[in-house]
Structures are given as C-alpha cells and as structure tokens.
Design a protein around this nucleic acid. Sequence first.
DNA 1: GGTTATATACTGGTACGCCATAATACGGCA
DNA 2: TGCCGTATTATGGCGTACCAGTATATAACC
Lengths: 231, 231
Amino acid sequence: MNDALAGNAIRVERPTKTLRELALDKVRDAIVDGYFRPGDRLVERDLCARLGVSRTIVREVLRHLESEGLVANLPNKGPIVARLDLNEAKQIYEIRGALEGMAARLCAERNDSTVVAALEASLEGIRQSYAAKDMPAVLNHTSAFYQTLFTKVDRHVAWGVVSLLTVRINHLRSMTIKTRNRDVEGPAQMERIVEAIRKGDGEAAYTAALDHVARASVIAEAVLSAQQTGD
Amino acid sequence: MNDALAGNAIRVERPTKTLRELALDKVRDAIVDGYFRPGDRLVERDLCARLGVSRTIVREVLRHLESEGLVANLPNKGPIVARLDLNEAKQIYEIRGALEGMAARLCAERNDSTVVAALEASLEGIRQSYAAKDMPAVLNHTSAFYQTLFTKVDRHVAWGVVSLLTVRINHLRSMTIKTRNRDVEGPAQMERIVEAIRKGDGEAAYTAALDHVARASVIAEAVLSAQQTGD
DNA sequence: GGTTATATACTGGTACGCCATAATACGGCA
DNA sequence: TGCCGTATTATGGCGTACCAGTATATAACC
C-alpha cells in the first residue's frame, strides 16, 4: 500500500521494486499459499539459498513478516511460520465484521452509483469463478469486493488493517469458500450488502456485512476444529 | 526506558531481549516522543552511531517500523519519519471508535465486576494525573483504560491493532489531552462508558465509546489544522 | 555565466566472519 | 552398562567491509 506515490511522467518502466520487496512477496506468498506450513522453521541460511539473496535481505523480510503476524520468533530457536489458533481466527473475523460493517454503512450513506456498479462487478466475478470452480479467483474477487467497499469511501487505513489481518487467515478463507452451499450462500449474503447500499440503508448494509463475516467465522471454526481432530 | 544509549552497563540481565528489540524500542520511542520529527530523515549509518549498533540491526529496525507505519521509505532517498496527514488521522480515530465501541459492548454484555473495578482504577489515575498536570501519566492511564476494555474480554488481536494505530497518532494524543476543558470532559465521557458497562447496557457502552473517540477526533483535527497554518 | 566534471553522501545490496547458545553425538570413567 | 562431561554441529545474533547506483552539492572549465 505504499505505491501511488509515483507521480512519474514518461519514466521508462523501471520497476522500483527493491530486491527486498520481491523477496518479501515471495516468502509471504509461500506462507499464504501453504508452501510453508504453520510451525515450519524458517532457517535463515536455508532461505538465502532458496531465494538467491543475502542473509541481510532474508532477515529483514523475516522481521517484516513477523510484524505482520505471519512469522513468530521463538527465543533461542529462531523464526517459524506462525500458528493460527481458533481463538485468534475468531477475533480476526470479528474485527473484520466491525470494520467491513462500518465501510458498508459509509458506502450506503454516500449513495454513489459507481460503488454499486463496482461491487456488482466483483460479485459477478465471484459467481463466475464459482461456476468455473476457480477458487483462487473467488478469493481475488472477494478481496476486490471488500477493497471497493473501503477505498470507494477513502478508508485506506482500514483497508490496510483488514488486508493485514486477512493474510493471517488466508488458508481458512480458502477452505470456507469450498464448503457446501457456500457458492450460493456467500454471494447471496454479499448481494444483500449491495442491495442495502443501493437503497442507501446504512443500518441494513452494516448488518448485512456483519452477518456475512459472522457466517464465515462459524464455517471457519468448524473447518478448523475438524482439521485439528483430523490430524 | 532505562540506560543504554550512552552507557554500556547492561551486563547483569538480558533475559530474552535481543539487541534488535532494544534498538527497536529505542527508535520507536524516539519517534513517538517527538525526538525525531515527522519528515526527518533517518540515516542508517547515523543511527548506527547513535545507537551503538551495527547497520544490520538498524536496517531491520527501520523495516519493522516501516511496517508499523511509523517510517516511510522514499525510493532512492531512504527512510524518513512518516508524516501524518489529517485524513489519515481521522481514519485512525474512526477505526478506534469502531473497535473500542465493540470492546465496550462486549464488556457490558459480560457483566464482570472486575472489569468495572479496573476501569475505575484507570479513570481515577487519569483524574489524579490531570490534577498533577502529569501529561505522560494521563496518556499511560488512558492506554491502560482501553487495554482493560480489550483484554478483559480477551480481544488481544483488536488491542494489538489499536495499539499499532495509536502510536501513529501519539503526538496528536498528547496535544488533544492538553486542550481546554479536556481534563473534565475526557474523564466524564469515559465515566459514561464505565457506567454503561456497570449497567450491562451494551448499546450505551458502544455509543459512549464512539462518542469519546469522535470528540477526540474533532479536537485532533482542530489541533492539526492549527498546527499546519502555524508553520 | 552556464555547463560539465567531480566529490560527497546515502541507500540498496552482498559477502564474510565472529560469537553465543542449544542440541546432539561421542568418548571416557565409575 | 550407564552416566556425565566434552566436542561438534546447526543456527541465530551481530558486526564489518565492500561495491553499485543515485542524488545533491561543488568546483572547474569553456
């Protein structure tokens, strides 16, 4: 979220991405996508070899991920992929509910037709992705939906918070959307949000957003406890 | 907050605190306490000398603070202390309102007398600190008040989010509490929160918490715009 | 005077080395 | 045989030196 400061004119396409940022994204994706499992040790020198960068970079990346909550540091042991416990996951869903509800209410009160259009577009993308069973695309469109909710009313900070928290429950998200009937239930709940925004009913939009997240939380809880008894 | 920057006498105890964590706290405090002003450049090798640590540590600390939002990185220029604009500050207050309102409601619904007792204790501390004109103590007790609100209902994640955001507006906080009549108004609003929690009235607690933050936001806005026209 | 060369200062990035600690393997001694 | 102290290894914590690229200030040159 630190782009959009460029202001460049005809500058040749030099990606100002530093090596560190590239490495950061790589490792984060590796964790989020499940390539590294929770509890896995992240050995510095090992990561250096795998990423092809120096230890300095790796250390900085690990520190960054640590402050994002994706990596935990055990004293005298070193960094591991953070474990997610049920309680923490529920808290994250709760916070998302509060913030997404807030954003939905603001959207409804703004009464801007482009908001509704953008949300509908994302929703349509979700439905199509469900139909095509393209689950990564479902997640992306869902994120886009919520991003619209926040950024259309200029709540970039809140969106940042939500994004930060969301990566920590990413693997839960990818499981909740696969549960039975979620392909119908999920979009229907989101449609309720859009409908309330279209009508300018802030309270209804708030409640609908809250409901949607609450439902996701319940599913996640079931998934997580099933997972824990499973292994 | 002890000795370290100039003195070397830390031989006896160092339980698990790494040098990096010490440096991190030092630099963060330096920013939060206004020793480094917004826009100040944070020259790596300069910080090395001041802190007495290597560039490795300084780089990791800067990266950490960057992800906390306290430090911004200009491409090819280097890190500076992040500037806080009015819009961002208002968003932070808004988020705090949503989360603190949520926590207050949960406290009210829990109906636990120890919560009320702890909140009253912090509130009394605030009043006494105001009477003694000890502004840092006011801030500390205020933080303790909110920490109680969150942790007594086991919302540690939300408290983490609020803490993270709060450091970014710390200098605003220290100015808002000094405004006229805030020594009476602030505690009175907080008392309303406590009162609602005591009665178990979740909705009232939510509203009271929201009002308190909203009022702080308005004051902060006035302070900030006055500051900007001032210089 | 204006343009250009140059010095300076800084970050981004890398390599390498040292030390401290924890775990593990090993070898000697009762 | 079994226990205990030590050597080894793995790894993180930390420091230093170095190179490259860039931006800014400064001096030199036409």
